[in-house]
Every structure is written in structure tokens, then in C-alpha cells.
């Protein structure tokens, strides 16, 4: 389910930028920035004081997190056509949050995903975030505050990294994995939860001439099963919002919905939920 909460952002809309950064065309509004430096991607979100998204950027996290944060920030600034000196406050989040020297505050991605998801879908009570290097399930209150959370960060199973490794092994582009699995006629069972073991399993499945689509579906099932155990740990509280890069994969989303027995809330750009939460934190400081 894709929610169109904000206008489609396009870099050239200078006129609308003017509208959205001023209050009734008179007073200049304050601008807030959230930067989520994750293990694979760095996402920057710029909002105004009405909490409207002016622009965002998604860039790859390179070897230097400070540079990645700077690059992502610059890119978002260009897209929003907001001058840097107009930014009132910046909050950094994600694993690289400590390496953002220009941030006013560092907040964990757990609090940011909770706040971001609740902004987009106010009825959110559970957030399932599957990122590049970890996955987490967060239980949130009506105000977007974290009540409880659980994380998988010790191994790659149930994370974007698992998908990446498998996509590379199957020679399928990562962004095509979802579509391919949706067209699968059957499903191959991946019995191992360990990335390294599952990789060998996939190699032997390929050797046995199993269709790629069915293997991919099995891979998605393995991820969902891993995440499901975390969801069960906290208990399912509706509504469930998905965030993180893996939420772009419709195959994973469909299987999670199958497990839940009801649809999940999904923003059209799930990768920026953490960055949005960080920007909202910046506004709330």
C-alpha cells in the first residue's frame, strides 16, 4: 500500500519551494534537516516547520561517513533550492551518526524510525525496519515515542546484506528481485538462516536447475521468517509500518503481509523514514 503523503519532489520546482519555505507568502519558515548515515546508504531529508518534506537524497555510504553525510546533505540542499545558512538545526542518525560533525544532535535510528513512521502513518504501532546491516522491530506509542524494540545486528541473516549476497550469486539486479519473485510459480525452501550457509545452498539449488524465481522467493521467505521471530518477540500491534531499503522489495513485503494476515503501511520511499524522523527530531529540539 503506497501512501501519497507528500507532493512528488522534483528539483526544478523553485516556485513551489518558495511557497513551502514561507508562511502565507510572508514570513520565512525555519528549515530542519535529518541525516541518516546507514551502513549502505546515507539519506538526507529536509523539512520546513510545517513538517512538510522539501526534498530528500539517497546516496551511497562510502568509506568516509563524514564525506557521505556532507555529500548527501549538499544534494538534498540543491534539490530543495534552500540555502545552507537557512537551515536551523540538523540531527544525525544511523550507525555513522557520530561522524557527522555539523549535526546539532545525534539520535539513534530507533527513535528516528519510530518518529518518522508515525509522522507518515499516525496509526503506526509497530515499525519493521529492514536495513542494510541490521533489522529491527519497534513498538511505538501514539506520539511516536519508542516503547520497546528488538534488533538483529549480530548476523546478516534477515538484512539487506543477505539479499545483496544472494542477488550477486544469482546474477540478478537487486531491484529486480521483488518483481521476479512475484512471478514465481512455486517456492524452493532455503533451510539455513546463516548467510554463508544459505549462499552455498543457493549455489547447489542453481546447480539442480531450480528456476531462479522460485529460489528468490525462498530467499525472501528466509528473510521474513528471521524478521518474524523478532516481530513475535514484541507482539504484533496494528498498524505495522515497514521502513528501510528492503521494504522496496515487493516480494518481501508480500510475504510479511501473508504472515501478518493484514497489509502493512508502506511509504513510497521507505529508505528515508529514518532521515525524516531525524529532521522531525531537529524540529522538536
Amino acid at each position: 500500500m503506497v501512501e501519497d503523503w507528500v507532493l512528488t519532489i522534483t528539483p526544478m520546482l523553485h516556485y513551489s519551494e518558495l511557497l513551502r519555505t514561507t508562511d502565507n507568502g510572508q514570513r520565512t519558515m525555519d528549515i530542519f534537516v535529518g541525516i541518516d548515515v546507514g551502513s549502505l546508504s546515507t539519506d538526507c531529508v529536509i523539512i520546513n516547520e510545517k513538517e512538510e518534506i522539501l526534498s530528500y537524497s539517497i546516496t551511497e555510504t562510502g568509506a568516509n561517513s563524514t564525506e557521505s553525510a556532507e555529500k548527501s546533505f549538499e544534494e538534498a540542499l540543491v534539490r530543495s533550492a534552500v540555502q545552507r545558512d537557512r537551515v536551523k538545526r540538523i540531527v544525525a542518525t544511523g550507525y555513522g551518526r557520530i561522524s557527522v560533525p555539523f549535526a546539532d544532535k545525534k539520535v539513534t535510528e530507533i527513535s528516528c524510525h519510530a518518529l518518522g513512521a508515525c509522522k507518515l502513518f499516525p496509526d503506526t504501532r509497530t515499525v519493521v525496519d529492514i536495513g542494510g546491516q541490521d533489522s529491527k522491530v519497534i513498538r511505538v506509542g501514539p506520539d511516536g515515542k519508542v516503547l520497546d524494540f528488538t534488533m538483529n545486528d549480530k548476523c546478516a541473516a534477515g538484512t539487506g546484506r543477505f539479499l545483496e549476497v544472494m542477488a550477486a550469486k544469482l546474477e540478478v539486479p537487486l531491484n529486480e528481485m521483488g518483481t521476479l519473485s512475484m512471478g514465481a510459480k512455486g517456492e524452493v525452501r532455503i533451510s539455513s538462516v546463516c548467510t554463508v550457509f544459505a549462499e552455498s545452498e543457493v549455489i547447489s539449488l542453481v546447480a539442480q536447475n531450480h528456476p531462479k524465481e522460485e529460489i528468490i522467493r525462498g530467499i525472501h521467505r528466509a528473510i521474513v521468517n528471521r524478521v518474524w521471530s523478532m516481530v513475535k518477540t514484541l507482539g504484533v500491534k496494528r498498524e505495522v509500518t515497514m521502513s528501510g531499503g528492503v521494504a522496496k522489495n515487493q516480494g518481501v513485503v508480500a510475504l510479511l503481509e501473508e504472515k501478518l494476515g493484514h497489509p502493512v503501511r508502506l511509504y513510497k520511499e521507505p529508505q528515508i523514514v529514518g532521515g525524516l524522523g531525524a529532521a522531525l527530531h531537529a524540529k522538536g529540539l
Binding site: Y95, K106, V107, T108, E109, I110, S111, D134, K145, V146, L147, F149, M151, D153, K154
Partner: peptide
Amino acid sequence: EGDITDSRAYSEEQARTRLDAFFETMEN
């Protein structure tokens, strides 16, 4: 997640994220 004496089973980075989130929750 960690261990009683074997620090190789403990990841500072990941523990700190959880603890920081816990501190944020406690301040709510």
C-alpha cells in the same frame, strides 16, 4: 548481547546504539 568475560562476543558499536535508544526511551 555480549559475554561475561570474552569481549570478542561483544560489539561496542551495536551495544551503544541499543543503549542510546534505551536512554532516549528513558528520557521520554
